[in-house]
Amino acid sequence: MTRDTSSTTPEILRYTAFATRPEGGNPAGVVPDATGLSDGRMLAIAAELGYSETAFLTPGTGRGAYAVRYFSPLAEVPFCGHATVASAVALAARTGPGRFVFSTAVGEVPVEVAADADGVLRATLTSVEPKVEDVSEGDVAEALALLGWAAADLDPDLPPRVAYAGARHLVLAAATRDRLARLAYDFDGLAAYMTARDLLTLQLVWRESTHVFHVRDPFPVGGVVEDPATGTAAAAFGAYLRELGAVGAPAVLTLHQGEDLGRPGLLHVELREGDARVRVSGAAVPIR
């Protein structure tokens, strides 16, 4: 008979991803063994932690194989990049660097963990097959109104699109860094807008140079005003840039996120020639 563990308190780790210091990046909860936990218990744990996502891992039969589910404080989400990086690094801290395979709601996600010269563990996830879709002028206008942006605030060289690499994100490129820095929006209105269109975040970006970007991600559907570092959106954004022809493969992009929140994070996005999938890399460290 299988023991019901849904009411027990599992081991919960706290990591921040896409940073080398605990005060940077995006915090995530990691439950390394969620065997037997009910959906309600996982949601309750995620809500209690209050991070944008918590990852719940169930060990598989193969070495480095895990089934993973992700919960925000409000609901389960299909995939989360920063919690994937945090989980892989947390596992590698115990078993050593190497390869992990996470079975998620959107498919298998391989993750490689290696230690850099300073001993910091860094993870590289490989996204599921991405796709990029057009978005109607009406949908763009409504999103801009909810953000308090004007059409003139957009960069005409990076048009709005919906990009997917495990979750859907509306990409809106600001014409200036100042416009990106001034983020104040209709929380409930944007949450309803995004829910109706199956959007996980808005990927708001400003291009500093060809391969360097600053990004921000409102996340009201998860009960969070803003995600400090968003690996899933970073992968989708890499696919978006390639689809537009704004960058060519091979290329490595640098994304700065969290600076406006006081939690600076650094994400690297790799596009490989002949491979549609996108790789997102970053460090992770425990939160003491």
Rank of each mutant, 00 (worst) to 15 (best):
D33Y: 15
V212N: 02
T8V: 12
G245T: 14
A152S: 15
A173V: 10
D116H: 09
A173Q: 01
P156H: 03
T210Y: 01
P10H: 08
S103T: 13
W206C: 11
R168P: 00
F71I: 01
R263I: 02
A65R: 15
F187S: 04
Y240C: 06
T124E: 14
L147A: 01
D217Y: 01
A246R: 12
R242T: 13
H82D: 01
H214I: 12
A184I: 04
S136V: 13
V109K: 00
G189R: 10
P220Q: 03
R288T: 13
V132Q: 13
V162E: 03
P130R: 06
H169G: 07
S127Y: 15
G222E: 02
G25Q: 06
V109L: 00
G107I: 10
A246D: 05
P97T: 08
G36P: 12
A196R: 14
W149C: 02
S103G: 03
V212I: 11
R94S: 06
E108W: 00
A83K: 09
P228S: 03
D33P: 15
T20Y: 05
P78C: 09
L146A: 08
T84E: 14
L204C: 07
T126N: 03
A105V: 00
L13S: 06
L43K: 01
Y51E: 04
S209K: 08
T95C: 03
S281M: 09
L37W: 14
A236N: 07
V68F: 11
V89W: 02
T124G: 03
T176N: 06
S7C: 09
A150K: 10
A17G: 11
G29M: 07
T16M: 09
F102D: 07
S87A: 15
V212M: 04
L271D: 04
V135E: 14
D116C: 07
A93V: 01
P97W: 12
P27W: 15
I287K: 02
L49C: 10
F219A: 15
H268I: 05
A114Q: 04
F56V: 03
L154N: 02
D33L: 12
L125F: 15
L158P: 06
A105T: 07
R161V: 08
R216I: 05
V106G: 04
A114I: 10
E108F: 00
E208G: 05
A284K: 11
E48A: 14
P130K: 06
T9R: 03
L261S: 02
G98M: 06
G189I: 05
E76C: 07
V221T: 09
L146W: 03
L271W: 06
L204G: 01
G274H: 13
V247E: 02
A283D: 14
T230N: 03
V285Y: 11
A246S: 10
G64F: 08
G25Y: 05
T54C: 04
V221C: 05
V31D: 12
L244N: 05
T201G: 00
S103F: 05
E11D: 14
V77F: 00
Q257V: 04
A196H: 08
T230R: 05
